[in-house]
C-alpha cells in the first residue's frame, strides 16, 4: 500500500491560548515496500502525522473545521488536502476506518504498557478477534497467535498461558508487538520501538523489524530520533521540524546535509560525524553512512594510500 499525503495540516486546541499547529502543509509519499524512517524532535509533528495514517486522528472532522472559512473573492482557495493509504481515502467521511486499521498496524511508544489480558494468548488474540467479521474458532486463533509469537521470537508453548505481567521487559515488548502484527497488516508503523531499552535490546528490536519487513509486513514506518538507527536500517527517511517536512531522502543522501540537520537541532549518525571530521583532515570518505560500509571504505582508502606494509592493494 502506497501512502500519499498532500497539503496536510493539523491544529491542536484551535482558537485557544494552547493552539498549536502540529502539521503545516505536509506533503509526503511512502512507497510500498519501504523501510521508512521518520525523524524529528518531540513536538515536530511526526507523531501527529503517523496517527493520521490509521485514522486515530480523523481527517474529515478536522478538514471540516478548515473548510468553514470560505475564501474571499480574488483569494486563491487553499490547495486540496490529500491523504491516501492504498485504496483508502482518509479525507472521506465514509471510509471504513476499521478496515483501514486492520491494514495499518500501529505500535505505540512503550507498547508493553498496553498489555491487559490474563494470558499472553488472550492479549495477542485481542486485535485478531476485534478485526474479524465472523467468530473465529479456537484453532484459528491458536494458529494465528502461534505464528505471531514465533515471528517475534517467542516460544508459543512456553508463553501462551503465562500472564503478560510476569514477563521480562524485553519479552513484554515482543508480546505487545505480536499483538499488533497478528492481523498481518500490510503497513506497520512503530513509534520509537527501541525507546528505553539497553543497547543490546535496541539491537534486537531493530533485527526483529527487519525480519518483519522481510516476512510479514510489506511496508515498515519507524519514528525515531536515533540517527544511527535510521542510517543503519532505513531505505528512506523524512525529517520533520516544527510541523513541516524538511527532507525526504535515502539516508545515504540525507546525511550529506549534516550541517543543515545540526542547524535544525538534530543529531547526525556517528558515521556522518566521522566523515565530516575526516574531511576536515583531508580524508574524503564517500560511504552510505552504514557502519559496515564506513569501515569498508576507510579500509579501502587506507589500502589505496599506502596501507599496511606487504599489503598488495
Amino acid at each position: 500500500m502506497r501512502i500519499v499525503a498532500e497539503h496536510l495540516s493539523y491544529v491542536y486546541n484551535p482558537k485557544s491560548p494552547f493552539e498549536t499547529a502540529a502539521l503545516k502543509d505536509v506533503s509526503l509519499t511512502i512507497e510500498e515496500g519501504e523501510f521508512f524512517g521518520i525523524i524529528g524532535h518531540t513536538g515536530s509533528g511526526k507523531s501527529t502525522f503517523v496517527q493520521h495514517l490509521n485514522g486515530l486522528i480523523r481527517l474529515p472532522s478536522s478538514l471540516r473545521r478548515y473548510k468553514k472559512k470560505k475564501p474571499k473573492k480574488g483569494e486563491i482557495p487553499p490547495p486540496e488536502t490529500v491523504l491516501r493509504v492504498g485504496e483508502f481515502d482518509l479525507t472521506d467521511k465514509k471510509t471504513d476506518f476499521r478496515a483501514l486499521r486492520k491494514s495499518v498496524g500501529m505500535v505505540f511508544q512503550y507498547p508493553e504498557y498496553q498489555l491487559f489480558a490474563e494470558t499472553v494468548r488472550d492479549d495477542v488474540a485481542f486485535g485478531l478477534k476485534n478485526f474479524s467479521a465472523e467468530k473465529l474458532s479456537d484453532e484459528q486463533i491458536d494458529a494465528a497467535v502461534r505464528a505471531a509469537l514465533e515471528v517475534v521470537g517467542l516460544d508459543y508453548g512456553e508463553m501462551k498461558d503465562k500472564s503478560p505481567f510476569d514477563l521480562s521487559g524485553g519479552q513484554k515488548r515482543r508480546v505487545a508487538i505480536a499483538g499488533v502484527i497478528v492481523t498481518r497488516p500490510e503497513v506497520l508503523v512503530l513509534d520509537e520501538p527501541a525507546a528505553g531499552l539497553d543497547p543490546l535490546g535496541k539491537k534486537e528490536v531493530m533485527e526483529l523489524l527487519h525480519k518483519l519487513h522481510r516476512e510479514w509486513c510489506k511496508t515498515v514506518v519507524v519514528v525515531s530520533h536515533d540517527m544511527d538507527e535510521i542510517s543503519e536500517n532505513c531505505t528512506k527517511a523524512a525529517v520533520f521540524s516544527e510541523g513541516s517536512v524538511r527532507y525526504v531522502l535515502p539516508p545515504k543522501e540525507l546525511f550529506r546535509h549534516a550541517d543543515e540537520l545540526t542547524a535544525l537541532g538534530l543529531d547526525v549518525p556517528l558515521t556522518a560525524k566521522l566523515c565530516t571530521a575526516l574531511a576536515k583532515r583531508g580524508v574524503e570518505i564517500d560511504c552510505d553512512f552504514t557502519t559496515e560500509d564506513f569501515i569498508g571504505k576507510v579500509l579501502a582508502y587506507w589500502a589505496a594510500h599506502g596501507g599496511r606494509k606487504g599489503d598488495n592493494a
Binding site: R98, G105, F108, F116, N130, G179
Partner: peptide, 25 residues
Amino acid sequence: NAQKARGADFESGNLFKRIRAMVPI
C-alpha cells in the same frame, strides 16, 4: 489509541458491552 489501533470499539453495543470494552483501558 493503542487499543483502538488493535480494533477495540468503545462506541457501540449496549451498556454491558461498553463497560466490558473499557477493561483493555
